[in-house]
Write a protein that binds this DNA or RNA. Sequence first.
DNA 1: GAAGATTGAGTGTTCAATCTTT
DNA 2: AAAGATTGAACACTCAATCTTC
Lengths: 179, 179
Amino acid sequence: VWAVVVNSPTGQQTDRIDEIVEFWRQENPDLDVTTKTLSMRLRTVAHLQEQALRRDLAVLGVEMWEVEMLLALRRASGAQRTAGELLREARITSGAITNRLSRLESHGWVRRDVDPGDRRQVLVTLTPAGWARADELIAAKNSAEQRFYAKMPRKTLERLGHDLRTLLATVEARDPSAR
Amino acid sequence: VWAVVVNSPTGQQTDRIDEIVEFWRQENPDLDVTTKTLSMRLRTVAHLQEQALRRDLAVLGVEMWEVEMLLALRRASGAQRTAGELLREARITSGAITNRLSRLESHGWVRRDVDPGDRRQVLVTLTPAGWARADELIAAKNSAEQRFYAKMPRKTLERLGHDLRTLLATVEARDPSAR
DNA sequence: GAAGATTGAGTGTTCAATCTTT
DNA sequence: AAAGATTGAACACTCAATCTTC
């Protein structure tokens, strides 16, 4: 009974995820507890971050996909990129990028032009209104992120960022298509 | 020019995310680089993990939502939970849970019964076929997770899990609705 | 009235087929 | 033939309205 309360080596109390992993370990003693725990935690925390940002950005009447697109364009030189570049960075399909661009265009935030150099490609350009919208969104997103990570020790945030960078590099080295 | 190649305090090379954050820092010198970097890395790594698991599980003709549901039921005593419990654990809306259960039921993996104790509730029970399916899926998911984290130093995985647990606890303490 | 589940409308995604350009 | 973008069908989600039961 007591062991259930503090079985973490770090002295922290067990949480919901520890309990779930413990269930599967009892079913299968060979289970890699470290990997399973990390996998669940990563998914949960990412989900919570996504929800928190979405909630904070909702007051501006904006969806996450719109933020992703306008900021990707805002970073481009001349605020212009091809549709293909945008879909690869956002890791979505070509059908999805067509839909996103149509919606952004109908709001007047981007313009679509055929690339004169290669007429198969579409050049997407941020309009002045889209540029202003992007500046509004990056500011709101920055403060939403601040709120999400507030109260966390600085040191922990830095260590997390560092370890996730290592993980990212390792995964991308194994599977170049993940780039 | 040279500073772009190695500006990480850890001695690692800069990557795509470092470059993006550096762009925004130049636009706004007050930017909290630690937070922004972590936010982007967390989202990216979680996305890659999701894609990797989905790809590995696709050979069984299964979607992630199905794995999530069957494993949640498999853990329950008597392989039975109410629809409400399932939607809270999966963090989805009530409409979504109804649809998921209908699809699982049509495949013969779960059964739906009115709770005799409270006729507003629906009791969801894993069928024998659903139980077998769940056992197949947990095994496949475990090896997919192993593959995703292979090549990573054990020590780093443990530290990541520990730090993410701290983050999760902090977030949930601030916003109990995130539980 | 409140809680739990269902329904339907609206949104946004993937996938496969198609069209244009290279 | 291959590459880039578009189209439409299928899928799965959220949100708001509704129904039943407490």
